[in-house]
C-alpha cells in the first residue's frame, strides 16, 4: 500500500492513538464552531488556541503548516483580491485606488470567510495527517457504515498510484511516437484523446478482473464481518464524543435562532 498519496504521517503521538471517530467528531465540532460563530475574528482565535496546539501535540506541526499554506494562501489571495478591490463604490469606502474602491464591510466579510475556511481546511488537514483513511473507514464500517464506502475509498487509494504510473507510461509512449503535448489550445485538446483512450481501455480490462474477484469473495453478501485489526475505543472517548455532539447541536441551534430572530425583527 502506498501512503504517500494522502497526508497521513505515521508517528507515535497522543493524537495518532485516539479513536478515528473521536478525531472526526472533533474536526466536525471545530468546523461547526468556525461557521456558526457570529464574530468574524473567532475562527482565527480558534486556529491559534486549539488547532495549532493540537498539531504540535500530534507532532506534525511542520507538515501541517506546509500543506495548509500551499492550499490556503492562494485561496486567501483571491478572496481578499475580489472582496478588497472588486466591490462597487459605496459609503463605507476606506480608500480608493484608480477605479478600485476598498470598503470596510467587504473586507470584514472577506476576513470572516477567510477565518471559516482556515478552520475548515486546517482541521481537515490535521485529521488526515494523524488518521489513516483506511483505519477511519474500518472503524466506521464496524459501527454500521455500508461496506461499499470503505471498499471504494480504500481500493481507490490503492489503485491510484498504479494508474498514475500507467499515465506516465502512456504519455511517454505517445510522445515518443510524436504526440505534441504543447502548442496551441486546439492542439492540446487534440492530444487529450490519445492519452485518455489507452488509459481507459486498460482500466476497463481491470474492471472485468475486479468484478470477478468481488463475486468470488462474496463482497455483496449480507451479515456482519470480522476484522483483522481491533481499533480501541475507550469509554472516556465515547463520553467526550457525546459532549462534542451536544456542543455542536447547541451551536447550530443557537445560530439558527439568532438568524431567525434577526429576520423576524427586520
Amino acid at each position: 500500500m502506498n501512503h504517500s498519496l494522502t497526508f497521513y504521517i505515521d508517528r507515535k503521538s497522543f493524537l495518532h492513538s485516539r479513536n478515528p471517530l473521536t478525531k472526526l467528531t472533533v474536526t466536525l465540532t471545530l468546523m461547526t464552531a468556525g461557521f456558526a460563530s457570529p464574530w468574524p475574528w473567532a475562527p482565527f482565535a480558534m486556529f491559534f488556541a486549539f488547532i495549532l496546539p493540537l498539531a504540535i501535540i500530534g507532532r506534525v506541526a511542520t507538515p501541517f503548516l506546509k500543506a495548509l499554506a500551499a492550499m490556503y494562501l492562494p485561496f486567501a489571495f483571491f478572496l481578499f483580491l475580489i472582496h478588497g478591490f472588486f466591490h462597487p463604490a459605496s459609503d463605507d469606502e476606506l480608500l480608493r485606488i484608480w477605479i478600485f474602491s476598498v470598503q470596510e464591510s467587504a473586507l470584514l466579510y472577506a476576513a470572516k470567510t477567510a477565518g471559516q475556511v482556515l478552520v475548515m481546511l486546517s482541521s481537515c488537514v490535521l485529521l488526515f495527517l494523524t488518521t489513516h483513511p483506511g483505519r477511519l473507514m474500518q472503524d466506521l464500517q464496524r459501527r454500521g457504515l455500508h461496506w461499499s464506502i470503505p471498499y471504494i475509498v480504500c481500493s481507490t487509494l490503492q489503485i491510484l498510484p498504479l494508474i498514475r504510473q500507467r499515465v506516465r507510461t502512456i504519455l511517454e509512449a505517445q510522445q515518443s511516437r510524436g504526440l505534441d503535448t504543447g502548442g496551441s489550445l486546439m492542439a492540446r485538446f487534440k492530444s487529450l484523446l490519445p492519452l485518455v483512450g489507452p488509459l481507459f481501455y486498460g482500466i476497463m480490462l481491470d474492471v472485468e478482473d475486479r468484478a470477478l474477484a468481488l463475486e468470488s469473495r462474496a463482497v455483496m453478501r449480507k451479515g456482519s464481518r470480522s476484522f483483522l485489526v481491533e481499533i480501541p475505543d475507550p469509554a472516556g472517548e465515547r463520553v467526550f464524543r457525546y459532549c462534542c455532539l451536544t456542543i455542536m447541536v447547541g451551536m447550530i441551534g443557537l445560530r439558527t435562532w439568532q438568524v431567525m430572530t434577526s429576520l423576524w425583527y427586520r
Binding site: I152, L160, I163, L199
Partner: peptide, 20 residues
C-alpha cells in the same frame, strides 16, 4: 458487481484526467 468494480476506477479516471 461490475458497478462496484467500476466505481473506484472511475474515481481514478476523474482524478488522473483532471491532472492530465
Amino acid at each position: 458487481s461490475v458497478t462496484w468494480a467500476l466505481i473506484p476506477l472511475a474515481i481514478c479516471i476523474n482524478i488522473v484526467v483532471g491532472q492530465i
